[in-house]
Amino acid sequence: MIIRRKTRKIAVGSVAVGGDSPISVQSMTNTDTRDTEKTIEQILRLEEAGCEIIRSAVLDEEAAKAIRVIRDAIHIPLIADIHFDYRLAISSMENGAEGIRINPGNLGGEEKLARVVDSAKHHKVPIRVGVNSGSIEKDLLKTHGYPSAENPKALIESALRNVQAIEKLGYHEMKISIKSSDVLTTVSGYRQLSALTDYPLHLGVTEAGGLIAGTVKSSVALGILLSQGIGDTFRISLTRDPVEEIRVGFELLRSLKIRERGPELISCPTCGRTRIDLFKLAEEVERYVQTMKRPIKVAVMGCVVNGPGEAKEADIGLTGGNGVGIIFKKGEIYKKVNEDVLLETFMAELKKMEEEG
């Protein structure tokens, strides 16, 4: 059983982060925020996949003003991602951002940070203090060296220094992230940071890579930390459609038995007995179950001989070969159909199970 470390609870819009609240799954849009139509369309797809908090880059004043249009069209909290220009942080909050992500050290000094914090207080907006390995202050790098698994002190001290700067201004609605592109540095850094603060932690491996490399690196680092009770919210960073980040995120939580959302999909790796286009079937079924909320187990198996038996714990599954498709439930054959209508028939059964609740 995983025992989460105790953290203070903050509110990002309607979503609680930290404390006893569920570990939330986030993503970030990769559209131009100023293109509100495309950004809204992407966020709505992310919502359908289960995204609970979304972040968008604010590059200029036009993007800050777009926050209002976007926020009014979506159903999950919207965080503005800000670098360097403190005015954009303030404008984003004035336009309805429900959270901001900043590196306080690169906003231009104490006076500008104070103005951002005053706005956050006024609008009741939490601040994510985000520090990456590539954005650490020079004096900390000189003292501690570049962050590594053996010595992540520069990352940790940078984050805590920036947190303390905000605390001195009388504000404590914060969460912290210290991201590295290195898995072991990420694990070591968050482990040590978690022992030094009770602020909620946002986990992530930055610049993790594409679908395969990014999934592996993120799952290893975050899986280790989450299994040790560290982490209150996270993003799986992939060079990919951000919807994939949400899919990976919830599968990670499911694998650790932390949270379940929608069906669990199991499928065989194929072998020489496979006589159906299993890759295509698995892909189509996987795409569909991502829209479902009922926590059932769905199987896509490659042959009639072993399919129902190997997946007998599945609530529903399909298999087939040589022109015949079989749908089974709990290991028992439920329906036989022609292979060319197997997918269509199976989808109808899934829809029926979802509607029945």
Rank of each mutant, 00 (worst) to 15 (best):
R5P: 12
V12M: 12
D32Y: 10
G321E: 04
E157D: 14
V248P: 02
R247T: 04
G130A: 15
G99T: 08
E61N: 05
G108Y: 07
G249M: 03
S181I: 10
V285D: 04
D72R: 07
G189C: 15
I40F: 04
S133T: 12
I224H: 11
L343R: 02
H83Y: 04
R68D: 05
A299G: 01
G231F: 06
R87G: 11
I127K: 00
P126M: 09
C51N: 06
E37A: 08
V12G: 10
L211G: 08
I10D: 07
S133E: 10
E245P: 02
I76R: 02
V129F: 05
E313N: 10
A149P: 09
N322T: 14
G210E: 09
A165P: 11
I178V: 15
N162H: 15
R115P: 07
D118N: 13
P263H: 00
T206N: 13
T143W: 05
G189T: 11
R8L: 12
K329H: 07
V69M: 02
L318E: 09
I178K: 12
A16I: 12
M28L: 00
E157R: 11
H122F: 15
G317Q: 06
A221C: 12
T345A: 07
I230S: 01
D198L: 13
R55G: 01
T206Q: 14
G272P: 04
R34A: 10
P126H: 06
R128L: 11
G134S: 04
E244R: 00
S91W: 14
M292E: 03
L350Y: 09
I178Q: 15
M1R: 14
E251H: 07
L350E: 05
I258F: 03
M292D: 05
E173V: 05
R240L: 07
A89Q: 06
D60F: 00
I79W: 02
L193E: 12
K112Q: 11
P77D: 04
T233C: 02
T215K: 05
K9E: 13
T270N: 03
R101K: 11
K142Y: 09
E207S: 13
R5S: 15
K297C: 00
D198R: 15
G204D: 00
K168Y: 14
S188K: 04
D232N: 15
E111I: 15
